[in-house]
Amino acid sequence: MLKGLGGLGDMAKMMKSAQELQTKMAQMQDDLANLTVTGESGAGLVKATATAKGGLTALDIDPSIFNGSDKEVVEDLILAAIKDAQTKAAEKAQQEMASLTESMGLPKDIKLPF
Results as ranks from 00 to 15, higher is better:
L45H: 03
I61Q: 01
E40A: 13
A58L: 09
F66L: 14
G54V: 11
P63R: 03
I65L: 03
A43I: 09
L59S: 00
G42Y: 06
A43L: 12
A48R: 04
G44H: 07
A43N: 14
A52D: 02
V37S: 10
L45N: 06
G42C: 09
D62G: 10
I61L: 14
S64C: 13
T49H: 06
L59F: 01
T38H: 08
A58V: 03
F66T: 04
L59H: 00
A48W: 11
G55K: 15
N67H: 14
K47S: 09
D60A: 12
I61W: 01
I65G: 03
D60I: 10
L35N: 02
L45S: 04
G55A: 14
P63N: 03
I61H: 00
L59W: 00
L45K: 12
A58H: 08
E40V: 02
G44S: 09
V37R: 02
D60W: 01
G55R: 13
L59R: 00
L56S: 05
G44I: 13
L56H: 04
T49Y: 05
T51Q: 10
G55H: 12
A50M: 05
E40G: 15
N67Y: 04
S41I: 14
K47I: 08
S41M: 13
S64N: 14
S41P: 12
P63V: 05
K47E: 09
L45F: 04
L45C: 04
G39F: 10
K47G: 07
I61C: 04
S64L: 12
F66C: 04
I61V: 13
T38F: 07
G42M: 11
N67L: 13
S64E: 10
T36G: 09
D62Y: 05
I65R: 02
G42H: 08
G54N: 04
A52I: 07
L59G: 00
D60R: 07
G42S: 07
P63I: 06
L35G: 00
V37T: 12
V37E: 08
D62F: 03
N67R: 15
T49D: 05
G55P: 01
T36I: 07
E40P: 09
A43G: 11
L45E: 02
V46Y: 00
A43R: 15
N67C: 08
G39T: 06
N67V: 11
K47Q: 15
L56P: 02
V46H: 01
T51N: 08
K47Y: 04
A48V: 13
T49C: 10
T36V: 13
K53T: 13
A48C: 15
A52Y: 02
T38K: 11
S64K: 15
T38N: 03
S64Q: 15
I65A: 02
G39S: 09
G42I: 07
D62M: 06
P63K: 08
A43S: 14
P63Y: 03
V46G: 01
F66S: 06
V46Q: 02
T36M: 10
S64F: 06
N67A: 15
L56Y: 01
A48Q: 05
V37G: 08
T38W: 08
G54D: 07
T51Y: 10
G42R: 11
T57C: 11
K53I: 09
A43P: 11
L45V: 06
S64T: 13
T38I: 15
K53E: 04
D62L: 06
T57P: 12
T49W: 01
D62R: 02
